[in-house]
Design a protein around this nucleic acid. Structure first.
Lengths: 208, 208
DNA sequence: GGATGTGAATGGATTCACAGCT
DNA sequence: AGCTGTGAATCCATTCACATCC
């Protein structure tokens, strides 16, 4: 049981999402084996078994995996067996889109606060979530026990917002702004860079 | 000059974005070396030089890289030395956010059509871009010479939309819907899965 | 002198092949 | 018999160290 490659966590998230769907369709007592799962997800069975083996033994030899049980185990590995409070900085189009997205709550991630500097929005509710002034980030994060933050503000403001989040004690940030943010070592930063994905496509189309 | 690792294309996109900013600040005749660039981007100089070396020799020994020249070279490698036409499927919050994002046009990616099944939106313009019915995907893609597509529709509709795009001859798709889409081998599919990034953060926070 | 460009060495991740269990 | 779990082998990516050139 060696140390898992970093990317296996992302794959576990994909397995989990599939298993949730599968469970709804197939009912409680269903089982699935690595070959079936691999076919659905267009992967190799080896990879799935290996990914799981990094974290424990979840299957039954000669049978496969019990779907409900595997799902619960993966959720636990991923830290999704408890609720997390998120805040979202930037209540523009992208921020609103993320608020409206139901998939987060399904996996126990709850957006509990919005921050936006537009005075017309402050105090209002978007998708049932209250909008606060960014000036209150430090106090609001503590008060609402917020665990992670999403940055969806224009790139000019991203570092300033990040600094406030860090000052508030937040340790996990997802950044949509197209800049490299500076964060201290104890803070986990992930970037969701939309244009980089498109650039990959452009490269594919133009390569011979 | 071996074959570049797949991920180096994504890094080239990051270098390019930085160089564009840097050029604006520093003026036309500026040069930069791999150590400086690495410091700005929080990477190792070796990696930057190696990434570039896969594609050619763009620097001058003892000097560094001419910013303008390097920028142009990277743009060319990435296929961004020409314009591309994109369509965006799904004119909801996420779709509107993507339309409003100015960063795409800056790198020669132009959204020229929206598709949405909401009859109240069809025929209207969002951010100056016309909304078409998804029924017209095949004809519109051909007519407007659309090169790539972004899928930002609810997950139930994503595969149907993808099938229409494929029928229209599109070879590059960026998918935001949280499902594994089936596409034929000649079509390049990339996924922008927002919740997977958050799951990574949850895992980080809950690991000891 | 000073920075690039690159083979070689190291380090990670995937794939394989099969032992091990039910 | 059948499918998991995993060491070993392979493949890919990063890092290093230095020869190379301006």
């Amino acid at each position: 049981m060696k140390r898992p490659p970093g990317i296996s966590i992302s794959r576990l998230a994909i397995y989990l999402r599939f298993l949730e769907e599968y469970l709804k369709e197939q009912g409680l007592k269903s089982t699935i084996n690595s070959a079936q799962l691999a076919r659905y997800l267009d992967m190799h069975p080896h990879q799935i078994r290996k990914d799981l083996s990094y974290f424990g033994k979840f299957g039954e030899r000669g049978v496969g995996y019990h779907v409900q049980e595997l799902k619960d185990n993966i959720a636990k590995i991923l830290g999704l067996n408890r609720k997390w409070n998120l805040c979202l900085c930037g209540a523009g189009n992208l921020g609103s889109a993320l608020c409206a997205y139901k998939g987060f709550k399904e996996i126990n991630l709850n957006i509990v606060a919005l921050f936006d500097s537009d005075v017309r929005k402050i105090g209002k509710y978007i998708q049932g979530i209250k909008v606060y002034s960014p000036k209150t980030i430090v106090s609001t994060v503590k008060e609402l026990k917020i665990d992670m933050a999403i940055i969806a503000v224009p790139l000019e403001n991203a570092q300033t917002i990040a600094d406030k989040l860090i000052a508030s004690g937040i340790r996990a940030i997802l950044n949509f702004a197209p800049v490299k943010l500076n964060v201290p070592g104890h803070v986990k930063l992930r970037n969701a860079d939309l244009s980089i994905e498109l650039v990959n496509l452009a490269h594919f189309l133009s390569s011979p």
